[in-house]
Design a binder for these strands. Structure first.
Length: 487
RNA sequence: GGCCCGUUGGUCAAGAGGUUAAGACGACGCCCUUUCACGGCGUAAUCAUGAGUUCAAUUCUCGUACGGGUCACCA
C-alpha cells in the first residue's frame, strides 16, 4: 500500500445526523491520513437537493470537531483543490464526461425516463435483473449530432465493455474480479446536466488527489465500474478500503429506528466523547496488543488497516458502557469532577457539600454521567425510607442494634468540631467505639449510612457520606434516624 | 433471482498448516469490603457444514447452508 503523500477524505451527505457507522468511517479515514502524515479532507456531498436539511452541515462540523477529527482541507477552511462543497463543483463534471465520450468510453443516451421504466418493468417480469438495454449505445454519429442539435434531452452513460472481466483491488478483500457483462452502462451525467454520485465521486477524488478511499461495504459492488472509469481517464486508481457495516443484530444494520445509532444520542446518554470514539474504533478493528483503551492520538499510532474486519460487527451497548467506565475511572479526579458537576447539580443543589469527597467516591462507580443525578439526590433531601434498610446480615445489624449504634455515635460525632470534620477523624472516632463495644465497624457505619441516605445503595459508606454532607446535616439525620427507630 | 462479500465462545475478536485456539465485555463462583460498587482470583463457553489437498487443517481448495451487500436520471 502506498503511504507517500497520503490524502484521505471523508465525504458525508448532510442529513442532519451523524450515524455512528459514518463517524467510524470518518475516524478510520482520519487515522490513515494521520498515521502516514497525510492530509484529511472534508468534502460535503450535498447534491441531493431533495434531502436538503437546514443546519445539517453544522452537525457534521460540530461532530468532527468535538471528536477531534480535525480536517486539513474543507469547505470552511479551504485548501488547494476546492471548492469542497460538491454543489459548488457542478460545473466541472460535464466536460469530463464529454472527454469520455470522445474517447469512446461513454455515449449519449436519449432514452426517456418513461421508456426506461417500461424496459425495467419488462425485464423484471421476465425475471432478469433490470439494466439499461443499451438502446442508444451504438447510435450512428450523425444521428447523435442531429438529436443533440435538436435539443433532445439526453444523459451520458458509461460504455462498459461487453465481455471480458474487470478486476479491482481492495486492501482488505484483495483482488475481486467480475464479468463485465454483469455491469450496467450506468448514467454519468443526468438529464439536468448534473453528475450522478458515482461519477462525481470519481472525478472529485481524482481532482482532489485522494490516495485512499475508505467507504462502506455497500460500494463494493460498484467498485469495478469506478475502476473502469479511472482506466478510461487514464487516472491512477486510489487504494480502496471497504469497511463492513455496524449491525444491531445478526440481520439488521444499526439504524435510526433503534434510537441509538447517532453520535448525538450517545453524548446525550452520558457517554464521554473520547470513549465513544474508542469503542467504535474497536468495532470492526482489532489492535495488535491487548490494550483496548486508546486516545485518539494513540489510535493514530496503533491503527493498522490489516486489523480491520471483513465481517459485520454487532454493536454491543454493554461493551461500550464498559469502555466508557474505563475512561471515567482513568480520568484525573479534577477532570472527572469538572465533567460530573453539571450532573451532580441536577439533583444536588446544596452548597454545603464536600464536592471533593463526593467526586472521589462517585468516580469509581460512574459508568455514565447520566447515572449521577439519581445517585446523589438524597443529599439535598432525605426521603422517607423503609426500616428494613437497617437489616444487614453480614454486619449482623437490625433496627434494634442500629438504634443502639446511632445513639452511641451521636455524641461522638457532636464532639468533632466543624473544622475537624474529616473522613479520617470521623472514621477514627467511630472505629474506636466499635472496638470498645467489640463489634465490627460496619455495625456502626451501616446504620449511619442508612440514616443519612435512606437508600440501599449509595456512593460511599457512612464515613464518606458524613464527610460529604457536613456535620449539621449528618447530626440532623442521625437524630431523625433515632426518632424513626424509636417509634 | 443474478453478481459480489462474509462465517472463531452470547458479543467484539487474536490467529495467517502442527497452539493448552489469546485478550476484552457479558455470565457464573470465590476473595476483599463501612452499603452498592471498584478491585483481585477463578470457572464455563468458540473454529457453520460436507468433501478434497496434506504426515497434519480453524488456517489452503471446492461444494452446501446461513447472513450481508448490490442491481435508480439517490447519495
Amino acid at each position: 500500500m502506498n503511504t507517500e503523500n497520503v490524502r484521505t477524505r471523508f465525504a458525508p451527505s448532510p442529513t442532519g445526523f451523524m450515524h455512528i457507522g459514518n463517524l467510524r468511517t470518518a475516524l478510520y479515514t482520519y487515522l490513515i491520513a494521520k498515521k502516514y502524515n497525510g492530509k484529511f479532507i472534508l468534502r460535503i456531498e450535498d447534491t441531493d437537493q431533495g434531502r436538503y436539511v437546514e443546519g445539517a452541515t453544522d452537525v457534521i462540523y460540530d461532530t468532527l470537531r468535538v471528536c477531534g477529527l480535525n480536517w486539513d482541507e474543507g469547505p470552511d477552511i479551504g485548501g488547494p483543490v476546492g471548492p469542497y462543497i460538491q454543489s459548488e463543483r457542478m460545473g466541472i463534471f460535464k466536460q469530463y464526461a464529454e472527454e469520455l465520450v470522445k474517447k469512446g468510453k461513454a455515449y449519449y443516451c436519449f432514452c426517456t425516463k418513461e421508456r426506461m421504466d417500461q424496459v425495467h418493468e419488462e425485464q423484471r417480469a421476465k425475471g432478469i435483473t433490470p439494466t439499461y438495454d443499451r438502446h442508444c449505445r451504438d447510435l450512428p454519429a450523425d444521428e447523435v449530432r442531429k438529436l443533440l442539435d435538436a435539443g433532445t434531452p439526453y444523459v451520458i452513460r458509461q460504455r462498459v465493455p461487453l465481455d471480458g472481466t474487470t478486476t479491482f483491488h481492495d486492501e482488505l478483500y484483495g483482488d475481486i474480479t467480475v464479468p463485465n457483462a454483469d455491469l450496467d452502462d450506468q448514467i454519468l451525467i443526468k438529464a439536468d446536466g448534473m453528475p450522478t454520485y458515482n461519477f462525481a465521486n470519481v472525478v472529485d477524488d481524482h481532482l482532489m488527489g485522494i490516495t485512499h478511499v475508505v467507504r462502506g461495504n455497500e460500494y463494493l459492488s460498484s467498485a469495478p465500474k469506478y475502476n473502469l472509469l479511472y482506466e478510461a481517464f487514464g487516472w491512477e486508481v486510489p487504494c480502496y478500503i471497504h469497511v463492513e457495516h455496524i449491525m444491531r443484530d445478526e440481520t439488521h444494520k444499526l439504524s435510526k429506528r433503534d434510537g441509538d445509532a447517532y453520535f448525538g444520542d450517545f453524548v446525550e446518554a452520558g457517554y464521554y466523547i473520547p470513549a465513544i470514539l474508542n469503542y467504535i474504533a474497536l468495532l470492526g478493528w482489532a489492535p495488535k496488543g491487548e490494550n483496548e483503551i486508546f486516545t485518539l492520538d494513540e489510535l493514530v499510532q496503533e491503527f493498522d488497516i490489516h486489523g480491520l474486519s471483513k465481517s459485520p460487527a454487532i454493536f454491543d451497548p454493554l461493551k461500550m458502557k464498559a469502555i466508557n467506565f474505563e475512561w471515567i475511572k482513568r480520568l484525573p479526579l479534577e477532570e472527572f469532577k469538572k465533567a460530573a458537576l453539571p450532573y451532580i447539580r441536577q439533583t444536588c443543589k446544596s452548597e454545603n457539600v464536600n464536592l471533593d469527597v463526593l467526586a472521589r467516591v462517585l468516580q469509581p462507580r460512574t459508568e455514565l454521567f447520566t447515572q449521577i443525578p439519581e445517585r446523589v439526590d438524597f443529599i439535598d433531601e432525605l426521603r422517607d425510607y423503609d426500616i428494613d434498610l437497617y437489616f444487614n446480615k453480614k454486619m449482623k445489624t437490625t433496627p434494634e442494634t442500629s438504634l443502639e449504634a446511632l445513639k452511641a455515635s451521636l455524641p461522638l460525632l457532636e464532639s468533632i468540631s466543624e473544622t475537624d470534620w474529616t473522613e479520617e477523624n470521623i472514621y477514627n472516632i467511630l472505629s474506636k467505639k466499635a472496638e470498645e463495644l467489640g463489634v465490627k465497624v460496619g455495625w456502626i457505619l451501616l446504620p449511619i449510612r442508612a440514616a443519612l441516605s435512606g437508600k440501599l445503595s449509595t456512593p460511599g459508606g457512612g464515613v464518606e457520606l458524613a464527610a460529604i454532607m457536613g456535620k449539621e446535616v449528618t447530626l440532623d439525620r442521625i437524630k431523625k434516624g433515632i426518632e424513626k427507630l424509636s417509634a
